[in-house]
Amino acid sequence: MKNMDYYIRSEQAVYESIIQNRKNLLKELIEMKHADYQAVVIFATGSSSNAAFAAQLYMSAKLAIPVYVEEPSVSANYMLHLNKNILYIAISQGGHSYSTIHLVKEIERQGGTVFTLTSDSNSPIAKEGSRTINLGMGIEEMPYVTLGYSATILVLNLLALEIALLQAKISEDDYHADISELEKITAHLTKVIEKGANWVETHTDELLEAERIFFIGYGAAYGVAREGETKVTETIRITAFGKELEEYMHGPYIGLSEQDYIIFIEPQGLLENRADKLKQFLKGHVKNIRTMYADTGGESEDDLLLGLATDELLTPLYMTIPVHLLSFQISKKKGINLETSAFPEFDQITKSKI
Rank of each mutant, 00 (worst) to 15 (best):
Tyr7Gly: 00
Ile8Ala: 02
Glu11Leu: 12
Tyr15Val: 04
Tyr15Pro: 00
Ile18Gln: 13
Ile18Pro: 02
Gln20Glu: 06
Arg22Tyr: 02
Asn24Leu: 14
Lys27Cys: 05
His34Lys: 09
His34Ile: 07
Gln38Tyr: 10
Ala39Pro: 03
Val40Met: 10
Val41Tyr: 15
Thr45Asn: 07
Ala51Thr: 07
Ala54Asn: 11
Ala55Thr: 04
Tyr58Cys: 04
Tyr58Leu: 08
Ala61Thr: 13
Ile65Met: 11
Pro66Tyr: 10
Val67Ser: 03
Glu70Ser: 05
Glu71Ser: 09
Pro72Gly: 02
Val74Leu: 10
Ser75Arg: 04
Asn85Pro: 07
Asn85Ala: 12
Ile86Asp: 05
Tyr88Gly: 00
Ala90Pro: 03
Gly95Asn: 07
His96Arg: 08
Tyr98Glu: 06
Tyr98Val: 07
Tyr98Met: 10
Glu106Val: 09
Arg109Ala: 14
Gly111His: 06
Thr113Tyr: 10
Val114Lys: 01
Thr116Trp: 10
Ser119Ala: 15
Ser119Thr: 05
Asp120Ser: 09
Ala126Trp: 08
Arg131Gln: 12
Arg131Phe: 15
Thr132Ile: 15
Thr132Val: 15
Ile133His: 02
Gly136Cys: 10
Gly138Tyr: 02
Ile139Leu: 15
Ile139Ala: 07
Pro143Cys: 03
Val145Arg: 07
Tyr149Thr: 02
Ile153Asn: 00
Leu154Lys: 11
Leu159Trp: 04
Glu162Val: 12
Ala168Gly: 09
Ser171Thr: 13
Glu172Trp: 12
Glu172Ile: 14
Glu172Thr: 13
His176Ala: 09
Glu183Asn: 11
Lys184Gln: 11
Thr186Gly: 04
Val192Glu: 04
Ile193Tyr: 15
Glu194Arg: 14
Lys195Arg: 06
Lys195His: 11
Ala197Glu: 07
Asn198Ala: 14
Val200Glu: 00
Glu206Met: 10
Ile213Gln: 00
Phe214Cys: 01
Ile216Asp: 00
Tyr218His: 09
Tyr218Arg: 01
Gly219Ala: 13
Tyr222Val: 15
Val224Lys: 01
Gly228Val: 01
Thr230Ser: 15
Thr230Asp: 12
Ile238Arg: 02
Thr239His: 11
Glu244Lys: 01
His250Thr: 06
His250Ser: 03
Gly251Lys: 06
Tyr253Ile: 15
Ser257Thr: 12
Ser257Cys: 06
Glu258Val: 07
Ile263Asp: 02
Ile263Ser: 02
Ile263Asn: 00
Ile265Met: 01
Pro267Leu: 03
Pro267Ile: 05
Gly269Phe: 01
Leu271Lys: 15
Asn273Leu: 12
Arg274Leu: 07
Arg274Ala: 06
Ala275Thr: 05
Ala275Asn: 04
Lys279Thr: 08
Gln280Gly: 13
Gln280Ser: 13
Phe281Asn: 11
Leu282Ala: 03
His285Cys: 14
Val286Trp: 02
Lys287Thr: 08
Ile289Pro: 02
Met292Ile: 09
Asp295Gly: 04
Gly298Asn: 03
Glu301Leu: 14
Gly307Pro: 04
Leu308His: 03
Asp311Gln: 15
Leu313Phe: 11
Leu314Cys: 13
Leu314Arg: 05
Leu317Asn: 03
Thr320Ser: 11
Thr320Ile: 14
Thr320Phe: 05
Thr320Met: 14
His324Leu: 13
Leu326Tyr: 09
Phe328Thr: 01
Phe328Cys: 01
Phe328Val: 04
Gln329Thr: 10
Gln329Cys: 08
Ile330Arg: 00
Ser331Asn: 06
Ser331Asp: 00
Lys334Pro: 03
Asn337Ser: 12
Glu339Lys: 06
Thr340Glu: 15
Ile354Tyr: 12
